[in-house]
Design a protein around this nucleic acid. Structure first.
Lengths: 196, 196, 196, 196
DNA sequence: AATGAATGAGGTTTCATTCAT
DNA sequence: AATGAATGAAACCTCATTCAT
């Protein structure tokens, strides 16, 4: 009687969850979030019943939440080291923007799923707020350090996040575009915009 | 037997369509696009059955299309004169950005619906592409005129559009925020970013 | 308040009915009986509302009945003189079968409609029974006159009617087939089968 | 989540499918094909919802297809051995016709359903064509063997099939008629018609 | 630990018919 | 004589979830 039995998960249990999450990501990529029903996910995962999914996840939110966690983890593991390698708020911002665009080509499936869920799933404000908070804090710290100029950090955070997401979606939809170049352009844009 | 009877619309017919469109906008605002079912819209409009909606609109796409038309018309009528009043590509860009944020407070329902539909409805890439084309053309023309600096106009167009949408959504979700100020910040941001 | 106001029909009334019947026949030919809804018929007739149809016909059965009458009348007027021109039961049977197949090419629309209705409409047993009675009587009379051999007239009537309908449908579906030839073959078949 | 889960069917699953197919046959017999809605079939089967049917069958075509398979199987198993027992094309034709009429009394429900579906369902031309092909081939082979006389085999095939179907329907509608006798009459008719 | 079966609400759409004007 | 508007039942189908085994 799992379905999140107090988080103490056996090996099999974890494997099953991972398998289902992977299937969900695949389905979202192929058909979009709206079409990611339990039925389709089960079929994709080669499961014979949707009951299987309900057994391992408390409900759909639980599953989608896990997909979100998986996707953000992948993103984080890609972006974080690249930011760490950069020195200073300005350079870190550039690293963030450029690596985010490279991520689109490195893990297209996860990125696409992330975007679809963020846009369409009903329950993601906390996810949005968290991202916003991190950006705003970075900008304010950079301003305090004198690396950034004068601007409303909240407004700028929203602006940058929106720009990132739009460009990510654009790159996903247009695989022929040079992601690295667009990433540099994006970084240049906000480098100019945040200059002291 | 309407449902788009060759466009020749009666007074009553037009009134009902408008009423239903208004109800759809209200429902989308309250529950989001995904939950905007005929049943909910009918209830919101005080209609006794969904058959009523099907009678006046050929199908859901037809209804959503009308909502989109209505919302974009409202937006256009708000923004266009403010852009016209500005002189030069740079000033027009600022007017566009600032008025777009004022629009959020002037017509919150229409803006919210517009965003929800653009993000969630399956049939809107043309709408997206059109907006992108207009922005890219404006930027290129401004570059040719020497008002803007050197940058990839496509990348910048995506960036600006994403920023607009994100800020609009942010303002919608946070009514306490000073939209005019955020609009000015947004305009300042891209004024710096596009400077020659 | 017509809808069969005691059969006393004005000129306009009759014209309207005829127009609607013609539209119904056209729709049945294009989309089949099952798709012959009031909505489609009204559109075909260039009417702005299905109310118009309900106004002139008591209900759908009434309309379909009129279509049936119209089609059978056309068929009768084509076949009757050709039977009359033939002498004797045997020759008349041949004339009936051959002319019926020629009718398919002469009035394809009416024939198609007739078949569709006879097969699909729920309320046509009387029509079927009437046709059966006429055939059986003809066969029995021919037997009494010594022109036909010994057989169960009822069974033969059913057999012939079924053969006619199947061949009609076949000809309708295969316009390239020589209807006159198939008509002769059909006549030959039952000439042999009914020979004394 | 069945609905044709790659054909690997459980016992329960098969039982339910059979139950639903049986209910569909019963409904078609009582109310005709057009009225054989999921709702009515579910009620007939004692099921509480139409979702149940959708769960076991991919869609209505799937269900109707199964009904058709079931009915043709029953018919084949009745007719085939009787044809096999006969020697020569002429005798086999007689066996076919006579046994087909006996089948009406042996399995009235299946026969009625078969007729209703063949006539009314949209997706059955292949079924019709196949039957036609078999008959035409039999007739031609018999002609080549010198057992049948000279006639257009295609025309004769259509004729015989039409006669069969009409008589089947007639027998279904008139239970008091002696099916065996009518079967013999039918066989006699085409025995004379195809004689060399 | 897992599965197959079932459920019932909800989705959009089409339909014939009614009625006030 | 005609029309536009409305109705509500019924259609097929999909969904997330539950439960006995």
């Amino acid at each position: 009687m799992p379905a999140n039995a107090a988080k103490g998960r056996t090996f099999t249990e974890s494997a099953r969850r991972a398998q289902i999450v992977a299937a969900a990501i695949a389905v979202i990529n192929e058909h979009g979030y709206a079409a990611a029903s339990f039925t389709r996910i089960a079929k994709q995962a080669g499961l014979s019943s949707t009951g299987m999914i309900s057994y391992h996840f408390a409900n759909k939110d639980d599953l989608i939440g896990e997909v979100l966690t998986e996707a953000t983890t992948v993103a984080y593991q890609f972006i974080a080291p690249r930011m760490d390698a950069a020195t200073g708020y300005r350079a870190k911002l550039r690293a963030r923007l450029e690596s985010n665009m490279q991520l689109v080509r490195a893990h297209p499936g996860h990125v696409r799923a992330l975007m679809e869920i963020a846009q369409n799933a009903p329950k993601t404000p906390e996810f949005v707020d968290q991202r916003f908070g991190l950006f705003a804090a970075h900008l304010r710290a950079g301003q305090d350090a004198g690396e950034f100029g004068t601007f409303n950090a909240d407004a700028m955070a929203v602006t940058i996040i929106g720009a990132i997401d739009a460009m990510v979606i654009g790159l996903v939809l247009h695989p022929e575009v040079d992601a690295a170049e667009f990433g540099r352009e994006l970084a240049d844009t906000f480098d100019r915009a945040t200059r002291p």
